[in-house]
Design a protein around this nucleic acid. Structure first.
Length: 275
DNA sequence: AAACGCCCCAACCGCGTTATA
DNA sequence: ATATAACGCGGTTGGGGCGTT
């Protein structure tokens, strides 16, 4: 596809916007909507390209944009969502009302990346663990979390927040109630066909993830945990499990990486997962 | 007070995707 | 079905602000 650069026309202004330009853009959009961005600057009387107008509006002038520094909660959410979604800034922004992808991207590169690098001890409320496994070497790995809580009432299997979500069969998930510490083991085989069934199974990992549907499906235990993993964007998850065994690699293509994340929201954990 | 270097963030660029003619 | 226009996203940049020397 051959396309002329957006601002190829001579005479179009670049660089920082002036308050006068902002006012013209805001007034025009309030009166007419943005419609066709490419046509907008000419109609509004701005010497800017449509792309520049769109960016200025979506990243700065939109009335629903939240101003000011990010709260600790927002930063935690970004870290957590980034674990889940990677550099999909717009997807992360969609889960943070009032924040733009650009803003989140900036805050990630300027603050959060450093914070994670310096991350020593886990925070009180959340821990995240990750492991990439070479798919060419089929393997089983196990993470075990121990807690003083009683998990004897944990339900077997996985229940998604949507009752219409596909349920994993017993061959895909085995749940074993173990010793006196109520250690639970779940094995999940990562096969290509099976992963399709997980696609509609992905929870929205935000604060409501921890407090709404999923929590209502389990006990009143204060130990909350979610496992997500898979190839590409097809994670599976479970929660309120103490020990999770992941049988991975056997059915993966050569160049696939298997990954999983562990999100834990509890101040009562005694040990970090061992990989 | 000047010079320097680092940090931050608004804005730009390039490219993939989607819509439309 | 194809070409083109428009949109949207993620990566990158550049310049202003600020702290340090």
């Amino acid at each position: 596809m051959v396309r002329a650069p957006c601002c190829e026309k001579m005479g179009l202004k670049k660089g920082p916007w002036t308050p006068e330009e902002d006012q013209i853009l805001v007034s025009y959009i309030q009166a007419n909507g943005h419609g066709n961005w490419r046509a907008l600057p000419k109609l509004a009387g701005l010497l800017r390209c449509g792309k520049s107008c769109r960016l200025r509006w979506t990243n700065y002038l939109r009335p629903d944009i939240k101003r000011g520094n990010f709260t600790r909660e927002e930063e935690d959410s970004i870290i957590q969502l980034h674990e889940m979604l990677g550099n999909r800034w717009s997807a992360i922004a969609a889960r943070l009302p009032g924040r733009t992808d650009n803003e989140i991207k900036n805050v990630w590169h300027t603050h959060l990346k450093k914070r994670l690098k310096n991350y020593q001890a886990p925070e009180n409320s959340k821990r995240q663990c990750k492991k990439n496994i070479d798919s060419k070497a089929p393997s089983t790995c196990q993470i075990t979390l121990k807690s003083s809580h009683n998990f004897s009432n944990i339900k077997e299997g996985i229940n998604g927040p949507d009752p219409n979500s596909p349920q994993l069969s017993s061959s895909e998930v085995s749940t074993v109630t173990a010793d006196s510490e109520s250690v639970m083991t779940m094995g999940v085989t990562n096969g290509g066909d099976q992963m399709d069934s997980y696609e509609n199974f992905i929870p929205e990992i935000d604060e409501s993830f921890w407090t709404d549907d999923l929590l209502s499906t389990a006990d009143n235990s204060s130990f909350d945990m979610a496992i997500s993993g898979g190839e590409g964007q097809f994670p599976f998850y479970d929660m309120k499990q103490e020990s999770v065994e992941l049988d991975v690699g056997a059915k993966l293509e050569d160049d696939m990486d298997f990954w999983y994340n562990v999100f834990i929201k509890s101040g009562d954990l005694l040990e970090l997962p061992e990989f």
